[in-house]
């Protein structure tokens, strides 16, 4: 045997029932237990907020997260559209059922067992589907034999304030910044500030949107570590957004956003796609690896 040959991980079997159980638990946990990174960012912003009303709002947001956790209650009544990111190892073999159906079943169980609100409806008749499915499932095949699941309940109010546009290459960095800033200023109090702003730059129309959503999964307060230009833009945008005066709950103040997260990939020579995905302060996501 050639010892230099790369050792590939053995094919591993993953039973669907574990996927369902994991998705169920993640959505209940995400809805009742706000991440430590968000709590830390809120506490930090409390030291920077100058508006008395703004401070009061931030204190209530922190108190609410604590009450929700202790009483196993949803942090927000909008327990979201169930967005699921799956990284499927190419050497993992799903057995015992269908991957997507097992995720949907996990969502169904979470929203029933966890007393979470069912917020999904037919777009035209507006009839509720009754179990918060279908979920929005993004599957990516990656090396390895494991399966990573990220559960992200996404609220409608902040999603409504999001946007995507196709800029011309001549718009450049200034054009990107303008899109982000204008969107946040127009959104005002609507998306429950302090917000987190996810921005996707490049790719195609749909890829920019996925990048923007993925940007929201980054731990709050962590800058882009892959590209210094993006880290710089993040800092500048956050600074400018917090000059807007919108403040916590839109009632005036210095803290309108907790973070601006940029993700980027190359795009067509003719295009400059930009997507802005707004996230409220109830920034929920939990993950696990099977």
């Amino acid at each position: 045997m050639d010892v230099k040959k790369k050792i590939r991980p053995a094919v591993r079997r993953i039973n669907c029932k574990y996927i369902t159980a994991a998705v169920r638990d993640l959505f209940i946990e995400a809805n009742t237990d706000l991440g430590a990174d968000v709590i830390f960012a809120l506490q930090d912003s409390l030291t920077k907020e100058e508006s008395p009303v703004g401070k009061q709002v931030l204190e209530k947001i922190i108190e609410n997260a604590d009450i929700a956790f202790r009483n196993k209650l949803p942090v927000c009544q909008d327990t979201g559209l169930a967005v699921v990111f799956i990284e499927l190892g190419q050497d993992a073999h799903i057995i015992g059922g269908d991957l997507r159906l097992s995720v949907e079943e996990g969502v169904r169980e979470a929203y029933a067992d966890g007393f979470l609100r069912k917020s999904v409806c037919d777009p035209l008749s507006r009839k509720n589907t009754g179990d918060n499915t279908p979920a929005i499932i993004h599957v990516e095949v990656v090396p390895g034999n494991r399966l990573k699941i990220i559960a992200m309940p996404k609220g409608g109010g902040s999603e409504n304030m999001s946007t995507a546009c196709m800029l011309t290459p001549s718009a450049g960095i200034e054009g990107i910044k303008q899109v982000v800033l204008e969107r946040v200023l127009q959104a005002g109090a609507n998306p429950c500030p302090p917000i987190i702003v996810g921005v996707g730059i490049g790719g195609s129309l749909e890829q920019a949107c996925i990048l923007a959503k993925k940007a929201l999964l980054r731990p709050t307060g962590e800058e882009n570590r892959k590209d210094e230009r993006l880290a710089q833009m993040e800092k500048e945008l956050l600074n400018n957004i917090n000059k807007s005066g919108i403040g916590p709950a839109g009632l005036g103040g210095r803290i309108t956003a907790l973070a601006v997260n940029l993700e980027m990939m190359p795009c067509h020579i003719a295009s400059l796609p930009v997507a802005v995905n707004i996230q409220c302060h109830v920034a929920r996501h939990k993950e696990t690896i099977i």
Binding site: V57, K60, I61, E63, N64, I67, A68, N71, L73, P74, V75, C76, Q77, G155, G157, A189, C192, A249, G250, L251, C280, H281, V282
Partner: peptide, 13 residues
């Protein structure tokens, strides 16, 4: 009237 969004566990009290 404006209420603070995203503090639903607290408001339910």
């Amino acid at each position: 009237f404006g209420a603070i969004g995203g503090i639903a566990a607290l408001t339910s009290q």
